[in-house]
């Protein structure tokens, strides 16, 4: 068993192997195919050895990886004619949360997702994917529009959490989140959530509940960030690893607790290593889930959605 100190170091090793592959690919080497295959096997080996050994902190690093596919990447790959809609019709528009309609497998669906930025400028413009109340309210507006036309709602979760700011409080971010939860419970169309990266607390939850919650293998969904938890419970910012181990927020944990319905496997090394394979996997599970949900009546879905969350929780009754 290999011990990993830092995921990014491991990643550099894998990247070096990949660079070697690319080099061989361009060369006139006679044994090109064989050499490449060997190197691919080596990467896979490296990863399998390590994969089982990844700590929650490493998973957080993968989930927050700057090259990890974001909402807009998925929309580009999974949909055609995606049309983004703006504004909550109350106060403004939130660039941290994208909502709109596109064709998915030849049929209209609403897509709603958090969007982080890739470059520094984009990150600032997107507020690092931390939504404001306008974002939650826009999301609900688009969900209700989907309901009007009978289109399914697919949400992509990838946020560090709600925006901790003065204006977000003034505009009632707690109310915005709460109201979304109540209204999602009543939606007559299928609602599928896919956790693609960070599932950060209330900011994730506001669009992160529905008929089925799917979760990429190396994403997480948590009541609080590891940093926040370390600061509050350990009173020590450096206790993030302890917080990460205690919070049990990984895909396998959430399966165990009955929160998540499906874990979507990631390519060796993480979603960012092979975008195409990631999209393919997400599409496969998403489409299967959607087909299953569309066979039910709205009443059945609403009832089963209620029961899904009704059952979550652990206590004893004496």
């Amino acid at each position: 068993m290999k011990e990993i100190k830092d995921f990014y170091q491991l990643e550099k090793d894998i990247a070096a192997l990949k660079a070697e592959i690319d080099k061989i690919q361009e060369s006139d080497d006679q044994d090109k195919r064989k050499k490449i295959e060997d190197l691919r096997a080596k990467i896979k080996d490296e990863w399998t050895q390590i994969g089982a050994n990844l700590s929650p902190v490493h998973i957080v690093q993968i989930a927050r990886h700057p090259k990890r596919p974001y909402t807009l990447d998925y929309l580009e790959s999974l949909t055609t004619d995606f049309t983004e809609l703006h504004g909550d019709r109350r106060a403004g528009d939130d660039p941290a949360l994208i909502a709109g309609f596109g064709f998915y497998h030849g049929r209209t669906a609403a897509f709603i997702g958090h969007q982080k930025g890739r470059t520094t400028r984009q990150r600032l413009a997107r507020n690092f994917g931390q939504p404001n109340p306008e974002g939650y309210r826009k999301a609900l507006r688009v969900m209700k529009l989907a309901e009007k036309f009978g289109f399914p709602v697919i949400t992509l979760i990838d946020t560090p959490g709600a925006n901790p700011g003065i204006q977000a409080e003034e505009k009632g971010q707690a109310e915005a989140i709460a109201y979304n939860l109540k209204e999602i419970a009543k939606l007559r169309v299928p609602v599928i959530n896919v956790v693609i990266g960070e599932g950060g607390s209330g900011g994730a939850l506001a669009i992160g509940v529905g008929d089925a919650i799917l979760m990429l293998e190396h994403s997480f969904y948590s009541v609080i960030s590891t940093e926040g938890c370390a600061a509050i419970l350990w009173k020590d910012q450096s206790a993030v690893d302890l917080a990460a181990e205690n919070l049990r927020f990984l895909s396998k944990d959430l399966m165990e607790f009955g929160v998540v319905d499906t874990v979507i496997p990631e390519p060796p090394g993480g979603a960012h290593v092979d975008y195409e394979l990631t999209y393919k996997n997400v599409d496969k599970y998403l489409h299967t889930t959607l087909k299953k949900l569309e066979k039910k009546t709205p009443e059945e879905r609403i009832q089963e959605r209620y029961q899904k969350f009704r059952k979550i929780g652990v206590f004893t009754e004496k």
Binding site: L205, V223, C229, F249, F257, F309, V314
Partner: peptide
Amino acid sequence: ARMQEGILSLMQLMK
């Protein structure tokens, strides 16, 4: 939400 019950606490908001 009670941090010590992790995601189970977060899901009580929806419940």
